[in-house]
């Protein structure tokens, strides 16, 4: 701006410059500062000077009004956006909070009229019952199955994804398509044949059987996700590792595993959530062997044909939720980062 003024005051070849200055619509904030320049111009062509003045006099209040309006608009927009956030938050948080609320109510106070979200009286009897009925066993079973299951899924899908990303073998694309196809088959649909196969193999009512099933079902998705991560890592890194004396497995272990760690974290969290809360397969495989029940079957225990102990169901759900929430909070940094990265760069 200052530079321009200097040029104008130098006079002489200012014609085209004046012409530009006279263009009527000026919406940028700089207009308000200009009268000084216009006024101080000694040689100034009359048309251009009067033009600028006429343009500016009513301009200032108008702009203020416009600014004020824009300010109000912005605030209104903010309010609407935050309002929508609040509604969404409430929508997702209500069931969880309701369950927490229900779990600490005394017996008989579950559904009151008028509706009360925060209970008048806090009672932990529901939690006592839940732990009496075997919550510790369920937690233990779920933990074992989830840890071993997720570990196995990662152990299978990392090398598989590495191979799909790096090796150029015959039928690679077809095999990848096949893996995707398996992902599309709902396990519920094949649950009856699965049951008979597992019975034949003697895997029914065993933790190993359930873990194998989980690995089989969850691996395809995990392979695809991890392959996306491997694809983002330049192949030169593999070459460099090979020149440095690594074989394929060492390349994977020493060089590639760390760069794809966010991907592994995503696979781990996703599968942990799934395995921890899975019900249908667990109930089918573990059947009537109560000592093997997982937390999700445990919750179901409090539901019977004679009546549902909603307080106990709520309490069991809260206890079952806690480990997951903890894990998620601990790893959410990777989770969000990993999800974004995978979705942007994955194949």
């Amino acid at each position: 701006m200052t530079e321009d003024h200097d040029r104008a005051e130098d006079g002489g070849s200012g014609d085209s410059y004046d012409g530009a200055r006279n263009r009527p619509p000026r919406s940028d904030g700089g207009t308000a500062e200009e009268p000084a320049a216009g006024g101080s111009r000694a040689d100034g062509g009359t048309t251009s000077a009067s033009g600028t003045v006429a343009e500016r006099l009513p301009g200032a209040p108008l702009e203020e009004a416009r600014d004020a309006l824009a300010d109000t608009d912005r605030r209104l927009l903010d309010a609407v956006v935050y309002g929508l956030y609040a509604v969404a938050m409430l929508f997702f948080a209500f069931p969880v909070l309701w369950i927490v609320s229900a779990s600490v109510r005394p017996q008989g106070e579950l559904l009151t009229f008028p509706f009360r979200f925060i209970p008048q009286e806090v009672s932990l009897t529901a939690y006592q019952r839940v732990f009496r009925e075997g919550m510790v066993t369920w937690l233990f079973n779920s933990t074992v199955i989830t840890l071993v299951g997720v570990g196995s899924i990662i152990a299978v899908s990392v090398p598989a994804a590495y191979a799909f990303s790096r090796f150029r073998f015959r039928g690679r694309r077809q095999l990848l398509g096949l893996v995707l196809l398996f992902q599309m088959i709902s396990s519920i649909i094949i649950i009856v044949p699965l049951y008979s196969v597992m019975t034949t193999l003697g895997l029914i009512e065993t933790r190993v059987g359930l873990i194998l099933l989980y690995v089989g079902i969850q691996t395809p998705f995990s392979i695809w996700l991890l392959k996306g991560y491997f694809d983002t890592i330049p192949e030169e890194l593999d070459y460099a590792a090979r020149i440095d004396g690594c074989n394929r497995l060492q390349t994977l272990r020493h060089v590639l595993l760390r760069p794809i760690a966010p991907g592994i974290a995503v696979v781990a969290i996703f599968n942990t959530v799934f395995l921890w809360s899975e019900f249908v397969l667990a109930y089918t495989v573990l059947g009537s062997e109560r000592s093997l029940y997982t937390i999700s079957i445990g919750v179901y225990e409090f539901q019977s044909q004679f009546g549902n102990d909603w307080r106990a169901i709520a309490a069991a759900s809260v206890v079952g939720m806690l480990p997951l929430v903890t894990v998620f909070i601990a790893l959410q940094r990777y989770f969000v980062k990993g999800l974004i990265k995978g979705s942007l760069k994955g194949e």
Partner: peptide, 15 residues
């Protein structure tokens, strides 16, 4: 690794 060569890549390929 048995050829006793060393290679520098365009994108450096540092770990």
């Amino acid at each position: 690794e048995a050829r006793n060569i060393a290679m520098v890549f365009q994108n450096y390929a540092l770990y």
